Simulated scan of single mutants.
Amino acid sequence: MATVDDLKFHEFDDAANLLAANPDAVTISIDEPAEKPKTKHGHLQDSGREEDDELLGTDDSDKTELLAGQKKSAPFWTFEYYQTFFDVDTYQVLDRIKGSVFPVPGKNFVRLYIRSNPDLYGPFWICATLVFAIAISGNLSKFFIHLGKPDFHYVPEFRKVSIAATAIYAYAWLVPLALWGFLMWRNSKVVNIVSYSFLEIVCVYGYSLFIYIPTAILWIIPQKALRWVLVVFALCLSGSVLVMTFWPAVRDDNRRIAVATIVTVVLLNALLAVGCLAYFFDAPELDLVMPTTTLPQNVTIRAIKEQ
């Protein structure tokens, strides 16, 4: 019975005879591993896939859990369900703020920053900061305009905080809700329309409002021309984020509907900015003049008769 050593010896003997007969012949040993090219090729494929996942903002572990059905969301009445909406670090928030202030032409804000981990932390605090920035700046603007007038008595208007909060949070939540419903309706009509989740749309609107925070602070300067230049500049940046995000979602729809949708998005954004500027800063203020006391006519006549 032939052993393994005998087989190897016969293989070596046959190879030696073949080389002696044909020096140009090439021999291949059965012991050489043939998996190196495949492993290298597989490594290249994995690296390319990792680069694609990094650009798309996905993660292998999350994808594996989703495919396996192991990643389940908590019920909506639990605290864990809403905790996931605030699971974001400072670097992600700053990166998304930077992306909203410096929009890149041709880049989708949702796919580039939001889709990997949409959050409510950034939009909530951006809206809250904008509310106080507009209310405080509006009061300071009124104070500086009437500074030095002896008949003016400054009284802080705290109602501006509630008015600003109502306007900004209604814009940041109700407009995305209406837009999300509209896109869902059009998605049932047109197959090629890109769909966004409600949370992604809220993120876009929330982060697009960040540019109005420094703008509202600069509105304290009592120069109407400068204020309108600032509001136009902020509108261009905030509106460009919205247009570059939602145009790919409606461009395959009917041309008139697509254009009307984008125009409506831009007009609502402009209405918020111009409305805040006109109400909190450029509203005509009535000078508070101390009323002069006048005696009734009959009292004056009686005093003259007594003299």
Rank of each mutant, 00 (worst) to 15 (best):
A225W: 11
V202T: 05
H43I: 01
N22M: 05
L230M: 01
F198M: 11
K189D: 09
S197P: 08
L226N: 06
L18P: 02
A25K: 08
K305A: 13
N298S: 10
A21P: 00
H153P: 12
P103H: 04
F76H: 03
V289G: 09
Q307N: 13
P123K: 07
S208A: 04
E200V: 02
K36F: 12
L271D: 15
R227W: 10
Y154D: 05
Q307P: 13
S73P: 08
K189Q: 13
Q297G: 13
E35I: 10
V229E: 06
D46P: 04
N192I: 15
D253F: 06
L179I: 08
V155C: 14
I163C: 07
L183H: 13
L55F: 09
F86M: 03
N254V: 15
L286V: 13
I136N: 04
F85D: 02
G122Q: 07
T166K: 05
A74F: 04
V194D: 06
I97K: 01
T245A: 00
A25Q: 06
L288P: 14
S61E: 15
T3W: 04
V289R: 07
G106D: 02
W77M: 00
V4G: 08
H43Y: 02
V263P: 10
P296N: 15
F280L: 08
F79T: 09
R96K: 07
G42Q: 15
Y279S: 14
I28G: 03
I213N: 01
F109V: 08
V299I: 09
F233G: 08
R256M: 10
L267M: 13
T300G: 05
G69T: 01
A273C: 05
K142L: 10
T78R: 05
A258M: 05
R96H: 01
F152V: 03
F85E: 00
P296F: 13
Y196S: 00
R159D: 14
S188K: 11
N22L: 05
T245I: 02
F76R: 06
L67F: 05
E306Y: 10
L177K: 05
G181L: 08
Y169F: 08
A25Y: 11
C276G: 12
R186E: 10
P284E: 12
S137N: 15
V231T: 09
S61R: 14
A249Y: 10
E306L: 09
E200G: 00
F79G: 01
R96G: 01
E35A: 13
P37V: 04
A172S: 09
I221G: 01
R115E: 10
G42S: 12
P23D: 02
L112D: 15
G42A: 09
N17E: 06
R251Q: 11
H146D: 08
A16E: 00
P248K: 03
A34S: 13
